[in-house]
Design a binder for these strands. Structure first.
Lengths: 300, 300
DNA sequence: CGATCCGGTGCATTCAATGCACCACTAAGG
DNA sequence: CCTTAGTGGTGCATTGAATGCACCGGATCG
C-alpha cells in the first residue's frame, strides 16, 4: 500500500500549502517528500501543483487527482468491510456528519443499539452545519449525513426523510405552557433564545416571522442547541429546536410544543450519502437501521 | 504506481491459476511473486486466493478486490483523460465492444470522423456477441458496448437505442427483389443463410418463424455476417442482417429489404456503458457522437 | 514409488528511496 | 539596497526493502 502512502503525503502537501511544512508534519525530510511528489507527477504525466514563490498550490489537475484517490480510498474501505463480512467477522467503521439536534438523544441511542449487535463496528461522529455536512460527503470524510433542512442538494442522495416541526421550548411554569395552540407571534412576544442563521431551525423561523411581518430578535443568539436547552430553565425565555433533539422524560422541568403549522411548515430531517457511492456493509446496515428508526418515529 | 503493478501481477495469478505460471508470464521469479502476493494479503488483512494442491484460485474476497482495482484503474484512466483535456492536449483511448454489424460501415466511419477532429485519441474495437459485451463492460475491459438485442440488462446502462428491423438480403436479380412487401415465409421458402443462435438477428428470426409455425433451416449457418453478405452474391440464397450492417452503395449487386413488421417486430440496437461508471472525456464525447449519428439514422 | 508439479522460505545481492548538505531564487523588511 | 527567512530543487552517500537463487515439504498423477 505504498501507493496510498504517497497519496497521504500529497494530501498533506495540499493541506500545508508547502512541501517543507508538509514534510515536517509527516516526519520526513523535505527532500524525500519533494522527490515523492516529483516522481508521482512524472509517472502521472502532469504536474498537480502550481509552484508559487511562497509554496505550492493544487492546480485543477491536482483537484481531480485528489478526488480520485479519496474515492479510491473509500472504495477500498468498502471492499475491506465486505471481505470482513465474508469472513464472518463483523467489523467496520462508520463516519457520520450530523446536526446538533441528533447528539443528545437520537444518535447515542442508535449507535449504542448498533454496537450492541455488532461490537466490532466503530463510529466517528462529526458535528457539522448543513453546508459543511455536504462538503464532508463529497470529500469522503464522512460516509453519512443526518441534517436538518440542508441547502444544496447536488451530490446529496437522500436515503430517508422525515418532517420535523420546529418546536418552542420553555420552563414548565412558563405562561405559554397554558396555551392550547402555540402561535409564532406568542413566542416572539416573549424573550427568546435562537440559533445562529446558518442553522435550519433559524432559517425557518426567519422565513415564518417575515411572513407575518415580524422579525426574530433573540436576547441570546448561539451556535449551541445545548445552551438553548439549558438556558430556558434559567431565564423565562423561549427556545427553539426540532423534536428529535428534545426529550420530555430526560429534560424534566422543561416542556416543548410544536409551533402551529398555520405559522410554520415543518422542515425536513434528511439522512443522506454521497450520490452514486457504494457504502461499506457496516455503513449501509447502520443507515438502514437509522432509516427504520426515523420511519417509526414519524409514524408514531 | 508500484501499487497498480502489484495488481497487474495479481491479475496474472488469477488468470494463470498458479503463481509459478504467472511469474513466468510476467518475467519474474516465482519467489518474488509469491512474496508480493503474501505481502499484499498481509497488508490487505485477508487471503484473496485459495491455496489448492495444483495451484491457487481466487476466493470471494479476491473477486471483490479484483473488481475494486479494475474500477480504480479505469477511474484513473478517466482522471488522466480529463487532465489531458485540461492541458489542452486532447488525448485518450476508447475501447468498444460491438456486434459484427457495426464493423463494415458504421464504426469505421464514426471512428474516422472522431479521429479527424481529435487525432490524439486512439481506439480499440473488440468484436463480441451480446453476452460477452456486457461481461466486457463489467470487468472494465471495454468502455462502451454497441450491440443488437442484448439479453441481460443488469449493469448495462443504455445511452441510446434505435430500432433496427431485420432485413433480408439477396442478389439484385433474385426473384424476391420483385416482391412489393417482403414476408418472412417467402424468405424461408428460398434457401437461406443464417447467423448462429447466439446472435440477436437469429433470435428474432427463430421467434418469428415459430409464431407462423415454421422453423429456420439454413443451408449455411455461420458466425460471420461478412460471410453472409458475400455468400448471397454466389448462391441464389437469402441472407439476414440489420440495416446498419448493410450498404446499398458499397455492396453493389446485392439488395436488402426489411422483413414486414407484420411478421417480425424490429429489434433494438443499444449503445451502453457499465452502470454508474464515469467515462473518460474522450469516451464520453465519442459516445455522444455515436448517439447523435444513431439518432439521425433512425430519424432519416 | 518415482516424477513432477505446487506454494513457501532462508540467504546473499542490488537498486530505489531516503537523509544530509547545499544551491538558486523570491518576498519581505528594515 | 542589502539582509533574512522562507521556498523548491539537486548531488551524494547510505540503508533497507524487493529480488533472484537454491532448496524444502507436500500433493498428485502415471
Amino acid at each position: 500500500m505504498q501507493h496510498l502512502d504517497t497519496f497521504r503525503l500529497i494530501e498533506a502537501i495540499a493541506r500545508a500549502g508547502s512541501i517543507r511544512k508538509a514534510a515536517e508534519d509527516s516526519n520526513i525530510t523535505a527532500s524525500a517528500l519533494n522527490r515523492r511528489l516529483a516522481r508521482f507527477e512524472r509517472e502521472f504525466g502532469s504536474q498537480i501543483f502550481e509552484r508559487l514563490p511562497r509554496g505550492v498550490r493544487l492546480n485543477p489537475a491536482g483537484e481531480l487527482v485528489l478526488q480520485h484517490y479519496r474515492a479510491q480510498r473509500s472504495d477500498l474501505a468498502r471492499v475491506k468491510s465486505q471481505v470482513a463480512d465474508l469472513t464472518g467477522v463483523r467489523r467496520g467503521h462508520v463516519t457520520i456528519a450530523c446536526s446538533q439536534a441528533l447528539l443528545p438523544f437520537f444518535l447515542p441511542e442508535q449507535i449504542a443499539a448498533y454496537r450492541n449487535a455488532h461490537p466490532g463496528v466503530t463510529f466517528a461522529v462529526n458535528v457539522r452545519d448543513r453546508e459543511q455536512a455536504e462538503a464532508e460527503l463529497v470529500s469522503f470524510r464522512s460516509d453519512l449525513a443526518l441534517v436538518f433542512e440542508p441547502r444544496v442538494l447536488v451530490d446529496f442522495q437522500v436515503l430517508h426523510a422525515i418532517p420535523q416541526p420546529v418546536c418552542a421550548l420553555f420552563a414548565r411554569d412558563h405562561p405559554l405552557a397554558q396555551q392550547p395552540e402555540l402561535r409564532l407571534r406568542d413566542c416572539l412576544d416573549h424573550p427568546h433564545i435562537a440559533p445562529a442563521h446558518k442553522y435550519g431551525v433559524r432559517g425557518l423561523l426567519d422565513m415564518a416571522a417575515k411572513r407575518v411581518g415580524r422579525t426574530v430578535t433573540p436576547v441570546v443568539e448561539t451556535e449551541s442547541f445545548e445552551l438553548i436547552r439549558y438556558y430556558v430553565m434559567h431565564e423565562r425565555a423561549v427556545g427553539f429546536q426540532i423534536p428529535i433533539g428534545l426529550s420530555a422524560e430526560r429534560d424534566t422541568g422543561m416542556v416543548f410544543r410544536p409551533i402551529s403549522v398555520r405559522d410554520m411548515p415543518p422542515g425536513n430531517l434528511l439522512l443522506g450519502q454521497m450520490r452514486g457511492r457504494v457504502l461499506s456493509v457496516a455503513t449501509s446496515r447502520f443507515a438502514d437501521q437509522v432509516a427504520l428508526a426515523l420511519a417509526e418515529m414519524s409514524g408514531a
